[in-house]
Design a protein around this nucleic acid. Structure first.
Lengths: 146, 146
DNA sequence: TTCCAATGTAATCATTGAAATGACAGCCGG
DNA sequence: CCGGCTGTCATTTCAATGATTACATTGGAA
């Protein structure tokens, strides 16, 4: 399986908000246009990001703003805000190994720490990138286009 | 989303084959018992592992054997054999960013290398573990139990 | 104060993939 | 040739994603 596109959508949202915040009113309809999806999808993701304390969304008039410096919002923060897996386990385990089999009753003990290592390697790499990197990258691209 | 349990099932299979190869005839029914699932599930995974050249499965009489040294079969090898995602991308991308939006048409260029880094970090960690580690761990557990 | 744009959210629906299961043809050693 | 085991297909159940419609709510602006 793959990590759902909501993650890249969320990163897209952050990039749009930062890029257009002085130029347009960045609404869920505006974002849906840029991302190529439905405004309701956007609002759901905004709600998740809000729940994780990463952004504020103004009702009535609309308007989205990060609650911290962009350099303090990592890909990992976004990932955890978006991915609903309780416990945050990357690997799904088969749920009924046979306790009467020596392997069956030990397989968890045998694998858990290794799977955790692998997951940690991914998450540590995610922590290295922040939304500030996206701002910088985007500004570079805009400068080239101009 | 999570990585499907077929991955941990495959690791369980390798461990059982190695642990019981001299003691029992390790059939898909035997494995299904230990793992707590259906023999057909096991056979599908065996077919995948066979297709990746990691094991040989004898028809008629039954019997499973790795094609290489266990130390030469990494978790990554198993992962790639099992996970059917074409291209092997861990992250799913929203498919219709708007090319008329500066962010929409650049978001791929902006994210692709970073997502690739993160995936590579996970895969590199996967390459560090092999089935030989499972054999060693399992023998340690069996020695403790005895 | 009323209007209205924008958000929050519930309810569907189509699609996809995982996992379980039953059925059966094909293979092969004894 | 028989019996056990694999390969494979078809079907079903279940959960998650993503799209969409509908509507109540909010709160700034006219």
């Amino acid at each position: 399986m793959q990590i759902s596109s909501r993650f890249t959508v969320a990163l897209h949202i952050f990039t749009c908000v930062d890029t257009f915040k002085d130029e347009y009113k960045v609404t869920s309809d505006f974002l849906a246009e840029s991302i190529g999806t439905n405004p309701v999808i956007i609002r759901k993701i905004l709600t998740q990001l809000q729940g994780a304390g990463l952004i504020k969304v103004a009702r009535g008039t609309g308007g989205i703003s990060p609650t911290r410096e962009l350099s303090e919002i990592s890909f990992y923060d976004v990932y955890r805000a978006i991915e609903p897996v309780e416990g945050g386990d990357l690997f799904r385990f088969h749920e009924h190994p046979n306790p009467q089999c020596p392997v069956g009753r030990s397989i968890h003990a045998l694998l858990d720490d290794k799977l955790k290592d692998i997951q940690a390697a991914m998450e540590d790499e995610m922590k290295k990138y922040t939304i500030a990197d996206l701002r910088a990258g985007m500004q570079g691209i805009l400068a080239e286009e101009a």
